[in-house]
Simulated scan of single mutants.
Amino acid sequence: MKNKYMPTAISLYLNYFIHGMGVIILAQNMTSLAQKWGTNVGGVSMVISSLGIGRLIVLLISGYLSDKLGRKPFVILGAVTYILFFVGIVASSSVVIAYICGIIAGMANSFLDSGTYAGLMEMFPTKKGTSNVTLKAFISAGQFLLPLMVSFLVANHLWFGWSFVFCAVFLALNLCFMIPAGKFPPVGTDVEVEENGEEEEVTEQKGNLWFDGTLFILYGYISQTTFYLVSQWVSEYGSQVAHMGSTAAHSLVSYYSLGSIICVLFTAVLSAKAVKEVQFLSVYTLISFVALLLMYLFPTGVICSIMSFVVGFSAAGGVMQLGLTVMADFFPKGKGTVTGIFYTAGSIASFTVPIFTGMMASNLSNVILFDVIVALLGFVVTTLITIRYYKLFGKKAKA
């Protein structure tokens, strides 16, 4: 708490609390939105895919520009465009307008990522992994709360749009602090190191651009796909395949989010005990593979509930943020640019996966099977990353 940038960091985390809601808010309101736009679940799924397009449009350039222009402008721009998304969705009357709003949401996510991840790594240079993983805790908190909010609105026959209004108002209030009072360290400054009166040697790039870069790009795609599929489809899978009731099926997303929150706390404790970020990657992806496989082979209410928690723990508990932190170790120059590259791969997943799953929607078992295969590939890729890490960093990796 002695870090003078802590109030700004808290504001950044609150943005991602709403982002957690934004990621699943369309999927959680599929039926209402389909009726509003005069389409079906497949049409809403296509609108969801537009978020990936929005991320793709600006993520690389915004990451690069955040290294040049600073972090704060992109955080503010991200919050403003997210507000436009929430308001635009409830005001839209067609799939076309909603699709445009979805693109705006994807752009908002990219702007936030470009300013936030790099900014936090500069605010907490000796705790990069923990600061980034904490973002996931706030994302998961939002994903845990939103299904409960939607269920409350449905049970009380209230307008579904109140959940969108809540998100827009919350972000607007947070902006009231960020615009006048938000403070960021100069780009590239190691704040904590300077405050301790110590100097930290700037490490040179050690990773191979083509081999290691390709591994991280693949992992960015795979890690996003693994938890994205579950967050978007687990409620429908529980309802149609496991034959769970509506309330119980919606609760699967909450179990998933609870698992991710607990994983963040667990990872933070181990990180404080000098367990390195890279040591989590292959273990968590293996757990994800096993949990998804069990969910596919034994689609019962009990198994789906337990495995939703386990997948949330292993695939959505900050492992993607840990992957970004490890990539920054391989390529320490230009944290904003690294963030842009890594999350561009994830945004490609956000765009392409809904298209694939839309074609599988007639048999949701195939959606989970697809996720099983992706998680297995993730284990292979993270194992290669771990091997490369220990080869490149040697004794330092074991310290």
Rank of each mutant, 00 (worst) to 15 (best):
L294Q: 04
L294M: 13
S231G: 10
Y228C: 04
I287S: 07
I262C: 15
T339V: 14
V234M: 08
A272V: 10
Y255Q: 01
H243W: 03
V264T: 15
L294T: 05
F289Y: 05
G317V: 06
I341R: 00
L265D: 03
I262M: 15
S350Y: 12
S308M: 09
H250G: 05
G301Y: 06
V302G: 07
M327C: 03
G346M: 01
L270D: 11
H250L: 13
Y343S: 02
M295N: 02
G245H: 04
K273Q: 15
T337R: 10
G346N: 03
S308Y: 06
E277G: 13
F330D: 07
V230N: 03
I341V: 11
T300K: 09
Y256P: 04
V310T: 13
G317C: 05
S260G: 15
G346A: 09
T344E: 05
I303T: 13
V230S: 02
T225W: 02
V253A: 09
G259S: 04
M307D: 02
P332T: 05
G245M: 04
G317M: 05
I306E: 13
Q321G: 11
T225K: 00
T325Q: 05
K273F: 15
F289D: 00
T247I: 14
S288N: 08
S288Q: 07
S350G: 12
K335N: 05
M307F: 08
A349W: 00
T344N: 11
A274M: 15
G318H: 05
A349Y: 00
L258I: 14
S254P: 05
K276H: 13
V275A: 13
L252V: 06
A316Y: 12
S305R: 09
H250F: 10
Q232R: 03
M244Y: 06
I303H: 07
V319M: 08
A242H: 02
G245V: 01
E236N: 06
C263I: 10
Q321C: 07
K335C: 03
A268Y: 12
Y296R: 00
L265I: 02
L293F: 13
V302K: 13
V290W: 01
G245N: 10
Y255K: 01
G336T: 06
V283Y: 01
L322C: 04
L252E: 12
G259P: 01
V310N: 12
G334F: 06
M244L: 09
T325A: 14
T225N: 07
T300A: 08
V275E: 12
G238N: 06
V290F: 09
V241D: 08
E236M: 03
I261M: 14
F266Y: 14
G317A: 03
Y237N: 04
L281P: 09
G317P: 04
L252P: 10
V283H: 01
Y256H: 12
S308N: 10
S305P: 08
S246V: 07
E277K: 04
Y255F: 14
K276C: 13
V319L: 11
I261V: 11
I261H: 09
G259A: 02
F280V: 11
E236D: 04
L270Q: 15
S314D: 12
G323H: 06
